[in-house]
Design a protein around this nucleic acid. Sequence first.
RNA 1: UCCGGCGUAGCUCAGUUGGUUAGAGCAUCUGACUGUUAAUCAGAGGGUCGCAGGUUCAAGUCCUGCCGCCGGAGCCA
Length: 451
Amino acid sequence: MHSHYKTYIYVERLSEYIGSEVVLRGWVYDRTEKGKLQFIKLRDGTGIVQCVLFKPNVAEDVFERAKQLVQETSFGIRGTVRADERAPGGVEIDVNDLWIYHIPPEQYPITPKEHGIEFLMEHRHLWLRSQRQWAILRVRAAVVRAIREFFDANGFVLADSPILTPNACEGTSTLFETEYFDLGKAYLSQSGQLYAEASAMALGRVYTFGPTFRAERSKTRRHLTEFWMVEPEMAFFDLDDTMDLAEDLVEHIVQSVLRNCQRELAVLGRDTSKLERVRRPFYRMSYTEAVEYLQKRGVKLIRKNPDGTESQLDFPWGEDFGAPQEEAIMEQFDKPCIIHRYPAEVKAFYMKRDPADPRVVLAMDMLAPEGGGEIIGGSQREDDYDRLLERIRHENLPEDAFQWYLDLRKYGSVPHSGFGLGLERTVKWITGAEHIREVIPFPRMIYRIVP
RNA sequence: UCCGGCGUAGCUCAGUUGGUUAGAGCAUCUGACUGUUAAUCAGAGGGUCGCAGGUUCAAGUCCUGCCGCCGGAGCCA
């Protein structure tokens, strides 16, 4: 019988063991020596605690063995938990015994000092052990947990979409391609939405949650080629229902992180008062109102001319927003804002026209404050067979490949809507990370696939 | 893809108008210290100046090409 793991004690729960002797195992985060005193910071994945060895109080061999502990040595200790104001975290361990699993034969490359980003990215597998990365990845896990809690508690069924797909969701230029036995090419999914629509017709409210892939040659601090997205899809929801749902979801995620991740947010130095404000209702603006705002504020559109020069235009109705426009719009807001009803020309073929204004579609994006950018994109879907077919032909998409998708409009078509929330963009905003590469354990970017 | 920038010690960087044997801090090693939080103090070791070619009496420094990386734009979540 091996059920020992249930008795293991971790740093995060040490305050429950003050006065008791415990066994801890982990890695050396840092060590300093001061004559007859040694301080060893033990990192066990749940936190860091300082272990103290005072020469007169420990066995000679234990004190000598502890001197071998270079950074990232794996080791275990038996010691007494003591509350001490001088210790970071308020708790420390008086060591009674100490044993070593492995001493690094070479110097650990990442020191507690500064490093450049190229060096850190090449050592991503080790960088994960640093405090800041620890905090970010724990917030990421908390965000995922909050997302699942939210949907599971609100009548949604998890119905995952395939990752290997036979055709594009929105054009083929940005797809990763691979051979699929004798059946020709397969592509890595860039959205689970179309399949989620099929699932929603079977199960009512569904969500798909998994990795998606975009072979875009983007090189910015908010792009990855592999990223995670949660995509709810709801039968009988119109655009307003969907905007309400998106607000409820984001409010739940942020408030849940605030409830569960105070330690992590403190490590990150995040100003939590800004997150506290993320309560419904959020702000909302139509695309047309947003354009008027940009024109009034004098935010220009910079356009490249064929001769290579650039010209600045008053922002024209009909252009999609880029990062500069989104930032200008969000400057005025201290919580997220939904922009809805975009020009049909800049949006995807499956979005439903607004019956009240045929120039626009029933689409919406949610922009996060504090430079968080676009975290959600969604829409009410075109549910009319003929209009959808017309859009597919207009975009020159392969009609054959969309037969199954058109079937959804043939057999009991209903109004339905959904959206995609980018997990990494959301975590980047909540943690305040400068770059999206920090919020996924092993980022995949245009010029980096190692480690 | 386009625009801009950077490659010097294990790491982060300095290096003047081209001029002797290429420098600092941290890290590492040795020694001292009973409270360190990026400890402090004393000492030691550590270099293919990204790679290749060129100019020059002389190149880390100037020129050309290549490689690697970073930031931004577009596209998007």
